[in-house]
Design a protein around this nucleic acid. Structure first.
Length: 502
RNA sequence: GGUGACGUGGCCGAGUGGUUAGGCAGAGGCCUGCAAAGCCUUGUACGGCGGUUCGAAUCCGCCCGUCACCUCCA
């Protein structure tokens, strides 16, 4: 095997592609900002989580150990509504209000959407983080962090809350480039209106609010923590004061990560995170994804079976689509790309079946893949190491599939074993061939009634074909097509599958 | 106004000084009752204007356009 490639990623802090050198040799420790669980996560959220997953897989492919922490934000933080209505609800409280009697309380709502998040996470073949901390379970850590910031003179208390004092951290702005105080002042950006704030850039560490739906007791009375402090507290709790890498969506660079940098570095007196990786927003059909444009998709909108209101898309096809563009470039998510991806996923699965059959048959012969597939894998890994160049990695991997499919009778036992190894390695790296669990069955909704109906029609069609009544056979094909069933004849029999509704 | 990206053929998307991306769609062929899949062959390109260079899609400058963040947001 060739020398291992150097893993490089674009670092928002240095604004260049840097070689990733873990603090602890051969052990990457990183944190991925997770979502607020007040509704279903959408495909844009998952593009960001996918970036973390691919970093994890690439590091593992290089033989590194990884410690991957990704949080769940289940505290309702302030929303813009507070500007209009200072007594208004936070976004979780607003969701509870919106959903009426569906949930008994805010904690049930958070639990429900956390579960939905995990279902979608698994459906998309995202590896589980080693730790998935919840903000509500780390309030003590957050309070301690705020206390420490106060002790060190980086925070102060007012009648309404506790704030981080930005002027005590001169490097504030170094991540986002938003360094000019007057610019920040120019826009009305505080979600917390507090006349006692010393500097408009100062942000809340603790909000006093004895009426909030979620509240905890603190040295400053009843209330709830500021948004940014949870990630500082939880990342340090599981990764230590200094760790390697932190990911999130591009919108998080400012203010969330900027504030995190300030908190962390004031807490520890040193650089706490070396690499910041931000995933670009995606567009859908050329437009910003929004509910009003009708181009807003959650994962379950796409992968659930049609009878449950979904579109029956193979979750791996969705994953493949999200990988079709590099994480750092604008990406236009289209139904066309989704259906293209479904075909390619199918192709991988066909190749995997061919290999499986060849392993069973185990015919004698030389290994025809030994000179090709290992190199193909190395090239795929090299592409991933090059700032997660997924388009190139996918193109390279597809060459391997074409090679396997083109083997024909050369796919003997020895060749199949090499091919199988390539499939396993490629799947470990890209996660696009096999579902890690039973997500497929859940997603495509095995439907016994439907299967009975389809099989009856197929039996009738087989009889028609047998007797040469092709008009009848084609009529049955049309009938099945109208039911959303695609029929495929092959030398060893007829198979069918449900078509995606796009 | 500030900050950061991006503009490649019908579409999606690699490539960063001279040599192939790849996929989809299109065209022709093989195979198949038909269809699908697969295989073979095949065309179309680098936003605009200058500059550097023997040579630029690739480097530099300017312009045009698109997007994102600066306000909850992946």
């Amino acid at each position: 095997m060739a020398d291992a490639p150097v893993f490089r990623l674009y670092n928002s802090m240095t604004r260049q592609v840097d070689a990733v050198e873990p603090l602890e040799d051969g052990h990457l420790r990183f944190y991925a900002c997770g979502p607020t669980v007040y509704t279903y996560a959408h495909i844009g959220n998952f593009r960001s989580f996918l970036t973390a997953d691919l970093i994890n897989r690439t590091a593992q492919a290089l033989g590194w150990e990884t410690t991957f922490v990704s949080n769940v934000t289940d505290v309702g933080h302030l929303t813009q509504d507070d500007l209009v209505d200072p007594e208004g609800a936070d976004k979780m409280a607003a969701a509870l209000e919106r959903e009426g009697q569906r949930f008994a309380n805010i904690y049930d709502l958070a639990r429900y959407y956390t579960g939905a998040l995990l279902d979608d996470w698994h459906a998309l073949n995202l590896q589980n983080p080693d730790v998935r901390p919840r903000a509500t379970e780390h309030i003590a850590h957050q309070i301690k962090a705020v206390e420490r910031l106060m002790e060190r003179g980086h925070a102060y208390e007012t009648d309404q809350g506790v704030y981080f004092s930005v002027e005590t951290f001169p490097e504030y702005g170094k991540l986002s480039g938003n360094e000019a105080a007057e610019q920040l002042q120019a826009t009305e950006r505080e979600t917390v209106q507090d006349p006692d704030k010393k500097d408009p850039r100062d942000f809340a560490l603790w909000k006093k609010d004895p009426d909030h739906l979620m509240q905890w007791h603190s040295p400053w009375g009843w209330g709830f923590p500021g948004w940014h402090i949870e990630c500082s507290a939880m990342s340090m709790a599981y990764l230590g004061e200094a760790f390697d890498l932190h990911t999130g969506g591009e919108d998080l660079a400012f203010p969330h990560h900027e504030c995190e940098v300030a908190q962390n570095e004031c807490l520890t007196g040193a650089t706490s995170v070396r690499y910041w990786v931000h995933t670009r927003f995606l567009q859908v059909e050329g437009e910003k994804m929004s509910k009003s444009s009708g181009n807003f998709f959650t994962v379950r909108d796409l992968i659930e079976p049609p009878e449950d209101g979904g579109r029956g898309v193979d979750p791996l096809a969705l994953r493949y689509t999200l990988m079709a563009g590099q994480y750092r470039k604008p990406f236009n998510f289209t139904k066309k790309t989704l259906s293209d991806s479904a075909r390619i996923i199918r192709r991988y699965q066909d190749a995997a079946e061919q290999v499986e059959e060849a392993l069973q048959a185990d015919e004698e012969g030389p290994d025809h893949a030994a000179d090709t597939l290992p190199d193909c894998y190395d090239a795929t890994l090299a592409a991933m190491c090059d700032d997660l160049n997924t388009p190139k990695a996918l193109a390279t991997a597809l060459e391997g599939v074409k090679f396997i499919q083109g083997l024909g009778r050369d796919l003997n036992g020895a060749t199949a074993r090499t091919a199988q190894q390539w499939l396993v390695d490629t799947n470990d790296l890209l996660g696009i061939i096999w579902h890690q669990g039973d997500a497929e069955a859940a997603a495509t909704g095995e439907n016994a009634d439907l299967a009975t109906k389809v099989n009856a029609l197929l039996d009738e069609r087989a009889a028609a074909r047998e007797s040469g009544d092709y008009d009848r056979a084609d009529a049955i094909r049309d009938e099945l097509d109208a039911m959303g069933i695609e029929v495929m004849d092959a030398p060893d029999g007829t198979t069918w599958k449900r078509k995606a509704v796009l």
